[in-house]
């Protein structure tokens, strides 16, 4: 069985009127099937309100499907006995790192989760050290989180998740509030965790450039998986993406325009290096 499997998952929110009476149901997730292997780097794209974040909250049992099932690391996410195992193996990182910072210095913050599950203090120290090294924040271990830049805060939040030794990290728009350098730092850290530590990454983003690094992209629309494929496949379907209120990376857009203009450039260009090679060859 794969690391994460979703089978015909449906999730409905109950809508309530002013007096709390049930007003109807809204289907946020509509028959979603997923099949994600350990070590995959997955990007989930989709317009606002398409169900991306709702789906993500199913991956560590914060929400349970109304219908269908989700298996994480072989456990049904609705199995009450397994819920803590699931939350240990799937960590979440949200848009605003400040919302998940508790400690007054970086080290304390990273130690918070393992302390909560009663891990041996020596072991915690080691985990904190390793986690901070992985996101290249070891030099700031004694700093106050409030003194850090946005990208640094977000990397501390990731280290906090890493200290739980997760098999998978779900990141919900982790760079939306960051400056260009902060974005680069966070994406670099995430890719390294995937490459070096073989941690499964599920990245939800509105930034097409970030999705280029994924092994596979899922595009959500109206609670369904509207498209899935490799970045090269997905980003060659410009019109379908635009119907989903999405776009392609700037590089891909320019390559497409140049090809239309008569230059002999292969389709599916995703990075600056690829485009330069294709033009200068």
């Amino acid at each position: 069985m794969n690391f994460l499997e979703a089978k015909k998952v449906i999730f409905e929110y109950v809508r309530r009127g002013k007096d709390g009476e049930v007003d109807g149901f809204k289907r946020a997730i509509d028959e979603v099937d997923l099949d994600i292997s350990q070590g995959d780097f997955i990007a989930i794209l989709g317009p606002n309100g398409s169900g991306k974040s709702t789906l993500a909250k199913h991956f560590n049992s914060l929400l349970h499907p109304t219908e269908g099932t989700i298996y994480v690391d072989g456990c049904d996410t609705t199995d009450a006995d397994k819920i803590w195992d699931i939350r240990k193996s799937v960590g979440m990182v949200f848009q605003n790192p400040e919302n998940q910072m508790i400690g007054t210095i970086v080290e304390e913050d990273v130690a918070f989760a393992p302390e909560n599950i009663g891990i041996d203090p020596e072991e915690i120290k080691q985990r904190v050290r390793e986690s901070l090294v992985m996101v290249e924040m070891q030099d700031h271990r004694k700093s106050s989180p409030s003194k850090l830049s946005g990208g640094q805060k977000q990397r501390v939040a990731i280290a906090g998740v890493l200290a739980m030794h997760p098999k998978c990290i779900v990141l919900d728009e982790p760079t939306a509030m960051l400056d260009p350098e902060g974005r680069r730092e966070v994406i670099r850290a995430v890719r390294a965790l995937n490459d070096v530590e073989n941690i499964t990454i599920i990245l939800i983003t509105h930034n097409m450039e970030e999705a280029v690094y994924a092994d596979r992209i899922y595009v959500m629309k109206d609670g369904r998986i509207a498209m899935s494929g490799t970045p090269r496949e997905i980003f060659s379907r410009v019109e379908e993406l635009e119907e989903c209120r999405l776009t392609v990376p700037q590089v891909t857009k320019l390559a497409y325009e140049l090809r239309k203009g008569g230059l002999d450039i292969p389709s599916g260009i995703l990075t600056r290096e690829e485009l330069c090679r294709a033009i200068c060859r």
Binding site: P47, E173, A176, M177, H206, M208, R245, T247
Partner: peptide, 12 residues
């Protein structure tokens, strides 16, 4: 101030 943060590309 950051009027497009968190919006999808069409929303931006």
């Amino acid at each position: 101030d950051e009027p497009c943060a968190g919006l999808d590309p069409a929303g931006r």
